[in-house]
Design a protein around this nucleic acid. Sequence first.
DNA 1: CGGTATCCCCATTGATACTG
DNA 2: CAGTATCAATGGGGATACCG
Lengths: 120, 120
Amino acid sequence: MAKTKQPVAHTEEACNAILLPVSDALDVLKGKWKLQIIVALTFGDKRFKEISNEVSGITDRMLSKELKDLEMNQLVKRTVYDSFPPIVEYSITEHGKSLANVIDELKAWGLLHRKKIIGK
Amino acid sequence: MAKTKQPVAHTEEACNAILLPVSDALDVLKGKWKLQIIVALTFGDKRFKEISNEVSGITDRMLSKELKDLEMNQLVKRTVYDSFPPIVEYSITEHGKSLANVIDELKAWGLLHRKKIIGK
DNA sequence: CGGTATCCCCATTGATACTG
DNA sequence: CAGTATCAATGGGGATACCG
């Protein structure tokens, strides 16, 4: 059982030292679409419509909104070419690429979990 | 610009090979409370009330629900001691501990992101 | 083409009260 | 102590129509 008394104040600090950055990270990736968009863009720069086609099920409204969020967090860069009809291209930034390790770990653990739980 | 034609079918496959496991992982950790509970438990086994005290703001209803989810996914183990008043203890499983790398990466990236964006 | 503007639904969460 | 039951609120996301 657990009557090993623990230094509560210290575990709270240690706790927050983990939880704050973890929450920051999760917030940035939150929602149904952001990671799908990021992953799609890691395979190459794409235009609005191209992303829309690759991320199956997303509406224009959501794609627009999510791209803005990602741009605000400097994960994605938006480039407008002055032409008609308009051409807008989206690409991953260096900061966006720095998510690679996170995505790799999530992927690895997801596979492990699927083997353990889902694919009994 | 981007007229480097890409093998669409292949990128779609590659895409899904990433997105499916990543979604699995994110689903398991989804919501406001699950990671807080997991992290709290990594500092030692705890009883319902103890978790409730450490995860600031959570209601009994939510804690109960989240613990059930975590138990279903075998991240957390629930042990009932036959006594009165009842004693129930929660602990992290080995599978739960296997999240350590994921949490570490999220933490590392969260810190990086905070330095880059939030902390000017 | 690359988006906005509106409206609406419903799932998740919160608040509160109660129980074995 | 360790929850459950019930109801209310919030907000993320969908559907559709329209615009520069």
